[in-house]
Write a protein that binds this DNA or RNA. Structure first.
Lengths: 384, 384
DNA sequence: AGGATCGATGTAATCGATTACACGCTTGAG
DNA sequence: CTCAAGCGTGTAATCGATTACATCGATCCT
């Protein structure tokens, strides 16, 4: 791969011309002070209280004054200042969603269903990208502590600060996907990583694989740790000896898949299948294997985890664990909404673990033990 | 592909137990009213004004009172209420970034560099996902009109409302990537789509292709339209007759690539190369071609546009147009920061068009005219 | 008819911070 | 010794909306 670069064009200039033509009319209305409720009140010949009521409590004002106020609002182009309103209401009707990285397509569906639920209940949503960077986390902590949001959805699996948890007394926090160490009494909506990983591993065993490697997620990541456990559960359940050399430290990115491939080629006794803890890792791994002349699934089988969109258009289409992302988002949103409702008593902080489904596609083939009695038995067990 | 589903587990119950143990201590401090500047003032034995000054204008208070105030702040755990502060300051030091869809990995790099620049200048960033849905757009319009943000970065190429532009007199707006129809005097940071598309098309011609199809972006999308123009420019420049049957309506998603493949197979006189207006479309197209038994680039060449991460780990690695995403984000951020600075005169609303680079990888092979004199000439021209 | 009631509206307090202005004390110059 | 300047601090206005309470008529009941 090389970069074939040629500057096609650089900076346009048309703006300068436009700017000059725009300066000629001597500033129609000057940087006009934004229109407030007082302007509307004056114009409609009522008090500000009446204007406020006409907007928020129709029924408390005559139909006649109301229409007069609405006309004044339309004429002036008034929009209530949300900051003032929030100050008075001590609430912003806004939820902050903290993610470890916004650009990842894994969030796509979750974000959408999340937003649907929250906006249905009248909440706005803003997203924050922490990149697991303490400075960034501190920035968002300030956003929360300073009362800018009414609730917090935490996807990151980490808190900016050990004391952050005390916020739970200020605003509700709901964890999504990731446990946060040391916070057992925050509600969590996640998946059953261990069971899902075990199921995929059993599927691989059922296809006749006996030497199965696991490309893990990031070190210290709670979900990744659960997936490792599930992988081990399944191996142990099938009576397959554990081989530490088949556990490859990875991450949730394609580069970690490439590193996994290096491990693969370095082994004398290579695995016949690799179960990756993320689709991104799996795809990076497949690419690296193919680059070295192997084919998937003929030479090696590879399975992933997550079910991102790209895994379906890869060649081969990736066999993977499909996370119920839409439901995850919906439940997380509903949970938070309930806890933000100050009128009702808060529901108990339950931990919800959703089931995943296997998405069998084309990246896993039969292993050396396929067709044997043991394989069939394992297969049947996996499909129960 | 079929779904091999088995409910591994459903809902955990540990929460109920936790809840019960948690209820026993009789609510240590009741839902304590958040601590305000008055609490700090009282504790430090000074006025609220002094507290405020101790925080914001050190130097205006004695070192001794200052430390006393800081001690009181630490003791009470005080964090200034940002809503009140914003109300008074008539500014929130926050920027809203509106995207047509957050989950797309194309935004990854842009978002990061954007955030870096803005936070360097003391601005927070919040993201909004419009999905090109008028209702959602209206929601964010309210956010802007109600003074919740100081500036707006618009990636969506559309305005919620024709009058939205008047906001330009309220808060600065900077367009990124996409022109908005009818808004010639908003500054824009984008790329030179036409030149880049022409360059890629010339590269295909240079590799000996003569029948080149173009899988377009979404109908009506300004950048996609420019890319079509560039494609046509290059064909015309090489004296290749235009064939309307080779322009396939697409989108920025893999599904549109599949539809493109259907067009491909429906043609009697098939193209030898396809230039897609997006990587996502290109990948979807390749997958569909391979599913029908063709190989890329041996049977057909495919080129993309954007340079998303996945294009590099695909098999074959995609030859594509690399957008300078990091620079795009940085310039957009800097432009907006300058315009939000009320002390300096606003810079003229220029339109900046950055150059892209070709990323030559493995998805384009030689066409039937390769090696011929004309091909060489075209090739040389493309590489100038 | 007189007083209670109710409905529509205005007045003013309030949310929590910032900041213009006033005040009092210290200090230095004349 | 007096007055101005300067510094540190407090008082109160302010940002823009919401809302408790007061007010004023009109209506209704006995």
């Amino acid at each position: 791969m090389f970069i074939h670069g040629r500057p096609t064009a650089t900076v346009g200039l048309s703006g300068r011309h436009l700017q000059m033509t725009r300066r000629i009319p001597p500033a129609p209305p000057p940087p006009s002070r934004p229109v407030t409720i007082h302007d509307v009140a004056r114009r409609a010949g009522v008090s500000t209280a009446t204007v406020s009521r006409a907007i928020g409590n129709p029924g408390q004002v005559t139909e006649e004054t109301r229409s007069r106020v609405l006309a004044a609002i339309r004429a002036t182009g008034f929009t209530p200042n949300a900051t003032a309103r929030n100050l008075r209401a001590r609430s912003t009707k806004t939820v902050l969603v903290l993610l470890p990285g916004l650009g990842n397509s894994f969030w796509n569906v979750i974000i959408n269903s999340l937003e649907d639920v929250l906006s249905e209940h009248g909440y706005g949503v803003i997203f924050g990208d922490t990149r697991n960077d303490p400075e960034r986390e501190a920035h968002y902590e300030r956003l929360v502590r300073s009362g800018q949001v009414d609730g917090l959805l935490l996807f990151t699996g980490r808190l900016p600060h050990p004391d952050f948890i005390q916020l739970d007394r200020t605003i509700p926090i709901t964890l999504v996907s990731n446990e946060v160490p040391g916070c057992p009494d925050l509600p969590l909506i996640g998946i059953d990583n261990r069971a899902a990983a075990a199921e995929m591993t059993r599927y691989l065993i059922g296809r006749g694989h006996r030497r199965i490697a696991h490309l893990t997620g990031p070190h210290g990541h709670p979900e990744a740790a659960e997936r490792i456990k599930g992988y081990r559960d399944a191996l142990a359940g099938a009576g397959i000896a554990h081989d530490e050399a088949l556990i490859w430290p990875g991450g949730f990115d394609p580069a970690s898949g490439r590193r996994g491939a290096e491990r693969f080629f370095a082994l004398a006794d290579r695995p016949t299948a690799v179960f990756a803890a993320s689709d991104e890792g799996a795809l990076g791994l497949i690419k690296a294997l193919k680059d070295r002349g192997l084919s998937v699934p003929e030479d090696v089988s590879v399975a992933g985890f997550d079910g991102i969109e790209y895994s379906g258009i890869y060649d081969p289409a990736l066999t993977t664990v499909l996370q119920p992302r839409s439901e995850l988002g919906r439940l997380a949103g509903e949970n938070l909404v309930k806890r933000m409702d100050r009128s009702a008593p808060p529901p108990p902080p339950a931990r919800t673990h959703l089931a995943c489904t296997l998405l069998i596609r084309d990246s896993v083939g039969d292993g050396p033990a396929a067709g044997r009695k043991g394989a069939l038995r394992a297969n049947r067990r996996a499909a129960t």
